[in-house]
Design a protein around this nucleic acid. Structure first.
Length: 586
RNA sequence: GGUCCUAUGGUGUAGGGGUCUAUCACGCCUGCCUGUCACGCAGGAGAUCGCCGGUUCAAAUCCGGCUAGGACCGCCA
């Protein structure tokens, strides 16, 4: 029997026709000499009817069917009587009178029900991922991801980008994340590294004259996992020659617009909003602000100047900041105990305390309200607070204030449901610092990566005040997630060498690690730049999920293992021998 | 590397020293049922309470360790 159509696509245009369907038994409702089967495939569910009246033989087989059996069935599409219509089903006005049915595959009872919204431990879902992926919401998420890719391929092809693959077995580089290493059999003791990104290759492709490159590239980083981080993930990676940062951003906006149109049918307004990194940190306490709600950070230094509250005064004297966020109508939502719990949480960002005031009709309430009696109007005005609001203050260094209040801002917005989930707020964050200080290494490290071009007017700072320099880099942010980022790259040897020097590389080390890039710069290298978008995060956000596992067919669990195949696993001594490796016992 | 949380039939859970011979729902099995779609009705099976040790007359319950998982900090150019 050849399949006529998908279950979910049977509609009134098939009325009276014979169809052949193949799929999985979603549900059997056995009424004796009348049996209903919901049959499921990737497009949806349709109801089959088996009856003594029209085919006793088929009814007998239907009696044996159980959930998740794979069957093929042929029958006639008929309209349901009015009172039998199921308005909840896409195919609810019709059903298929089954005349012939074959069991293609029997099934054990699955460990969880194949339906949306199941409440099951993630590990069990991953162990039986092939069952989990049968669930309609998973199918939709994976299909949505595919649609994004389709739109990306079409758009970039239209824009004359060339799709080029770069190696997965490549060279370990010192900066950045921990590498996944692959031992070489041919050169014992030598290792390939899986790419953290195709960065250097795509730059070399610009040197090769391809002008516009893109790739759907798998990237590997051996760091701990988070809801939005997997050890292997996919980037929509692109690079162009001769374009300005603005032009690259324009191209990217066109790409995002196309994806939003094709995948969700949503029109986004271009150009996208754009703020500097400084502004993002000052207003939102984050380099990837969620702009779907307010509660911005306000500087309270001036307003609390005369307040006899030592904590604030000490911080201000030391050159620190006193900033606040206002929780609208927050006074009733948070008890003293709850606020103190948040204060405890903030310790992990280095915050020593969380000062708070509830705005009442006659001033402030709360344990420190007494210090602020004389500045009620001033503080209310500065914070933009009204009666019933809760004002939360953090006084500390700039970084601690931003981290702590930035966290509180999003945490509270989620708790109080202040976020319009239907919004897709794209935002460029531009003009990043070129370097950030690493406590671990006691030196400056690249904020983006070591190949990022400084602002022209900051190039001289590389020799004198590197931490003052800003970069020609840009991140695209969506709803508080770093969706992607890119930069104009360095394409001249002397600037790249200055950069390596500022990063604390010796000339020899720069030469041995990145000599091939520096050499390439000597042979006529075009100015270039590009960007990479995290496909997994993009798909996660467009499908309304809160973990990228939900849009990856076979992800790792939060301990970086994969319960389905049990990777990683030990290997035989023979395999290790061939690689010249030995595993130490603990 | 660190902090916190969780572990009870197939699944999700209740139970926080004796009443547990372990609750409920879904699922599963058998029978009945011709208009169900959360089908219904009647009956049934299914759990060494994650593992090891300790406290106690007595441990699913308290304590310690381990294992597995989850969230977060660090880490993620």
């Amino acid at each position: 029997m050849k399949r006529t159509t998908y279950c979910g696509l049977v509609n009134e245009s098939f009325l009276g026709q014979q169809v052949c369907l193949k799929g999985w038994v979603q549900k059997r409702r056995d009424l004796g000499n009348l049996i209903f089967i919901d049959l499921r495939d990737r497009e949806g569910i349709v109801q089959l009817v088996f009856s003594q009246e029209f085919e006793p033989q088929a009814l007998k087989i239907a009696d044996q069917l159980r959930n998740e059996y794979v069957i093929e069935v042929s029958g006639i599409v008929v309209r349901r009587a009015d009172e039998e219509i199921n308005a909840k089903m896409k195919t609810g006005t019709i059903e298929v009178e089954a005349h012939q049915v074959n069991i293609l595959s029997k099934a054990k009872t699955p460990p969880f029900y194949i339906e949306n919204g199941i409440k099951v431990a993630d590990d069990l879902r991953l162990k039986y991922r092939y069952l989990d992926l049968r669930r309609p919401e998973m199918q939709q998420a994976i299909i949505l991801r595919s649609k994004i890719l389709q739109a990306v391929h079409r758009y970039l092809d239209d824009q004359d980008f060339i799709n080029i693959e770069t190696p997965y077995l490549t060279k370990s580089t010192p900066e950045g994340a921990r590498d996944y290493l692959v031992p070489s059999r041919v050169y014992p003791g030598h290792f390939y590294a899986l790419p953290q990104s195709p960065q250097l290759f795509k730059q070399l492709l610009m040197g090769a004259g391809f002008d516009r490159y893109y790739q759907i590239a798998r990237c590997f980083r051996d760091e701990d996992l988070r809801g939005d981080r997997q050890p292997e993930f996919t980037q929509i990676d692109l690079e162009t020659s001769f374009l300005t940062a603005q032009e690259i951003q324009d191209l990217t906006e066109g790409l995002l617009k196309k994806v939003m149109q094709n995948v969700l049918g949503i029109e986004i307004k271009l150009p996208l909003p754009r703020i500097t990194w400084d502004e993002a940190m000052n207003r939102f306490g984050s380099d990837k602000p969620d702009t779907r709600f307010g509660m911005e950070l306000t500087d309270m230094a001036a307003a609390v100047k005369g307040v006899d509250f030592k904590v604030f005064q000490n911080v201000l004297q030391k050159g620190g900041q006193v900033k606040a966020i206002v929780v609208p109508n927050g006074a009733d939502h948070y008890s003293r105990k709850e606020i103190e719990a948040k204060q405890d949480y903030l310790k992990r960002f280095g915050a020593k305390g969380l000062a708070w005031l509830k705005v009442t009709a006659d001033g402030f309430s709360g344990p420190i309200a007494k210090f602020f009696k004389d500045q009620v109007a001033e503080i209310k005005a500065a914070a933009g607070a009204k009666v019933g609001d809760l004002i939360l203050f953090v006084a500390d260094t700039r970084k601690v204030v931003a981290d702590a209040l930035g966290y509180l801002r999003t945490n509270i917005a989620h708790e109080l449901n202040l976020i319009d989930e239907s919004k897709f707020n794209f935002l460029w964050v531009v003009d990043w610092p070129l370097f950030e200080y690493s406590e671990e290494f006691h030196r400056y490290i690249a904020a983006h990566h070591p190949f990022t071009m400084p602002n022209e007017e900051d190039i001289h700072l590389l020799d004198t005040d590197p931490h003052q320099a800003h970069a020609q880099s840009y991140d695209i942010v969506l709803n508080g997630y770093e969706l992607g980022g890119g930069s104009i790259r360095i394409h001249r040897r002397e600037i790249q060498e200055k950069m390596f020097k500022a990063l604390g590389f010796t000339k020899e080390r720069a030469e041995s690690q990145f000599g091939f890039l520096l050499n390439a710069f000597d042979y006529g290298f075009p100015p270039h730049g590009g960007l990479a978008i995290g496909l997994d995060r993009f798909a996660m956000l467009l499908s309304g999920k809160d973990n990228i596992r939900e849009v990856i067919a076979f992800p790792k669990n939060s301990k970086a293992s994969e319960p389905l195949t049990n990777a990683p696993s030990t290997v035989s001594v023979k395999q290790l021998d061939e690689l010249g490796l030995e595993v130490e016992d603990d």
